[in-house]
Amino acid sequence: MADTVVPAGPETAVEDIRLKHHFATSAQQMDADTLGMWTFLITEVLFFGGMFTAYVMYRNMYLGAFASTSQYMNVVLGGTNTAVLICSSLTMALAVRAAQLSNRRHQILFLILTMIFGTAFLVIKGFEYHAKWVEHLVPGFGFQYEPAQYAHHAQILFFLYFAMTGMHALHMVVGLGLLTYLVVQAYRRVFSANYFVPVEMIGLYWHFVDIVWIFLFPLLYLIGHRR
């Protein structure tokens, strides 16, 4: 590929003060961190995977009921949120890039942009949740549904809706916390071309959360969205 390959860090990376005692080289430490993060993301795949499995089974069983729920899903807000998250992924990628290039100002800028997009997502999500509450669509809390023939099975979908998007939102909140940490560290000039692993790792996490939403959007909002 056309990307630049920068040999970052001198041969004597061992001297790096950020090198933890049990690693021999910075490269080893970075390899370990990366592999650890990806392993963690695999656990996340399977964590969400449990809910996706349930979704697939019930969708197969109660397609009609599931499709009918899409009339209560706000495609505009869902679509906007998808776009917002994609934007946040871009700014996150740019923040990582800025860190790799030791560009502190850009890094802080893009991190803050990412946080703004992330917050926007949560605010929009909050409006959606509120609307569901007002429409009595929260299972277990006075659930009411039209058409009545689907009332029972639609509850399953809404339960999954809240479980999946709620879990996703929780991950977003954690992500925002991590981003705050990154901004503070970046402000303190911790990151440079020699040391940017935390930015990259939290970036991976953020993109992963984005990927989850990329699947949630069509599965929850667009099931039967055709008249």
């Binding site: 590929m1 056309a2 990307d3 630049t4 390959v5 920068v6 040999p7 970052a8 860090g9 041969e11 990376a13 061992v14 021999a24 080289t25 910075s26 490269a27 080893q28 970075m30 390899d31 370990a32 776009a83 994609i86 934007c87 992924s89 871009l90 990628a93 740019l94 890039r97 790799q100 290039l101 071309a193 020699n194």
Partner: peptide
């Protein structure tokens, strides 16, 4: 592998690549 290279080989993506992907995603 951990000991054979002391360099950190970092691939820095081009801004254009990232923006194109973003556009495609939207």
């Amino acid at each position: 592998s951990a000991h054979t290279h002391a360099h950190l080989h970092v691939h820095i993506p081009k801004v254009r690549t990232l923006v194109l992907v973003w556009l495609a995603l939207i």
